[in-house]
């Protein structure tokens, strides 16, 4: 199975980092992978995305034309990538930041009020980790234990004090997903 994941939103939401955690988990599992950021002059506030491929086959192009996993954390990103998603793919929407619903009928959609949940945890900047926890729980693209390991490896020394909070955020995302699977709306 090849997971072609695009994570998109505003700069500053930690999208490149959540992509890196996912990629690192792939590394720990000995999978084939690539991580490619959008890069540009906007360090904060502009649009931002990264593409992560995790596969059992060698990765050809790191550029993803048709993601089968899309994680969006602002509306412009949903507008930009919704149509590109491969049929049967899954879209994870931060519903506290995106008011509208996904229009496609041929994809699976998960709405997570990630930013609101993060704010309630007094960790507003960790909505990305909640989203990531939900993705891994739902798709099993990597094992959740490896992802927690990956998080420990990738968090910068400067933010090491936030490791526990990050782990909690991932856990919150997983629980949200597990709960909603147990009681489908």
């Amino acid at each position: 199975m090849t997971y072609e994941t695009v994570m998109a939103g505003f700069g500053g939401q930690g999208l490149l980092f959540s992509g890196k955690v996912l990629a690192y988990a792939g590394l720990l599992e000995g999978r084939e992978l690539s991580w490619l950021p959008s890069y540009g002059p906007e360090m904060r506030g502009g649009t931002c995305n990264c593409s992560v491929i995790i596969s059992d086959e060698p990765v050809g192009s790191p550029i993803i034309a048709h993601p089968n996993v899309l994680m969006v954390m602002n509306e412009p990103s949903l507008d930009k990538f919704e149509d590109a998603v491969a049929p049967g793919g899954t879209i994870f929407v931060d519903s506290s930041l995106i008011a509208r619903k996904v229009r496609r009928a041929d994809v699976d959609v998960v709405y997570i009020p990630a930013t609101q949940m993060a704010t309630e945890m007094e960790a507003a900047s960790l909505a990305n980790m909640i989203m990531l926890g939900a993705i891994v729980e739902k798709l099993g693209c990597v094992k959740s234990e490896t992802m927690l390991d990956a998080l420990k490896h990738t968090i910068s020394a400067r933010k090491a004090n936030l490791l526990d909070l990050n782990l909690k955020a991932v856990e919150a995302g997983r629980r949200f997903m597990a709960d909603s699977a147990a009681s489908p709306a």
Binding site: L33, S34, P37, Y39
Partner: peptide, 10 residues
């Protein structure tokens, strides 16, 4: 090229 510089791989 810029992609090679920016991308991560094992």
């Amino acid at each position: 090229d810029g992609t090679m510089g920016q991308m991560m791989e094992p």
